[in-house]
């Protein structure tokens, strides 16, 4: 079984929800982790999950701006024509560097803000397509046609947005390069 078959919308929703529940459990003292700072550990887990998700999502699109542009013209045609090529070039690299910052912990709070912004935009764009019944590939993790946009995709991105928002307001995370914010 291939990785993209395992990491479908349902699995990612469950994974996101699981991470958010871990964070909520620690935050609201539903259980107390012994000896170590559970809230920071949960935030670290969220940071790494968001980072790997975003960096992983960018990999298939980095070297194929033409393919991503083609997908955008068909599926996200509400993006104004003049900025479509620039968007197709910039978005994958923005995802990649943001993911890298989150994984390494360098300026992780700023990266979390960008992550939230990207997820908010994606959620709106996919919702628009789903509501208008556009049968198209999401292009979220790859440009393959298998990535259909459904209500699950919207829910998945909303959960990602929730993860990013929690991370944004977290106090500190472990193993971060950026010590200034810790």
């Amino acid at each position: 079984m291939k990785v993209d078959q395992i990491l479908n919308d349902g699995t990612l929703c469950a994974l996101s929800l699981f991470l958010i529940l871990i964070w909520a459990g620690v935050k609201f003292r539903l259980y107390a982790p012994p000896r170590w700072d559970g809230e920071t550990a949960a935030a670290t887990l969220l940071r790494l999950a968001c980072g790997f998700l975003l960096a992983g999502a960018s990999l298939d699109k980095l070297g194929d701006a033409a393919g991503f542009l083609g997908l955008m013209k068909e599926c996200y045609f509400f993006v104004p024509d003049p900025i479509q090529p620039l968007t197709a070039v910039v978005i994958p690299w923005l995802e990649f560097f943001t993911g890298l910052c989150l994984v390494s912990g360098f300026r992780w709070r700023a990266a979390a803000l960008v992550f939230c912004g990207l997820m908010a935009v994606y959620t709106l764009a996919i919702s628009w397509d789903v509501l208008h019944g556009i049968d198209c590939s999401c292009g979220c993790f790859s440009k393959d046609a298998g990535e259909k946009m459904t209500g699950w995709t919207v829910l998945r991105d909303l959960l990602f947005l929730a993860m990013g928002s929690i991370l944004l307001v977290s106090r500190r995370t472990f193993a971060a390069l950026d010590r200034l914010n810790d």
Binding site: L86, W93, F97, R109, A110, A111, V114
Partner: peptide, 17 residues
């Protein structure tokens, strides 16, 4: 945070272009 996020965006856009 907003300033650093803007820096990240500008760096990524510059690198991408």
């Amino acid at each position: 945070t907003a300033g650093q996020a803007w820096d990240l965006f500008v760096f990524s856009a510059f690198f991408a272009v």
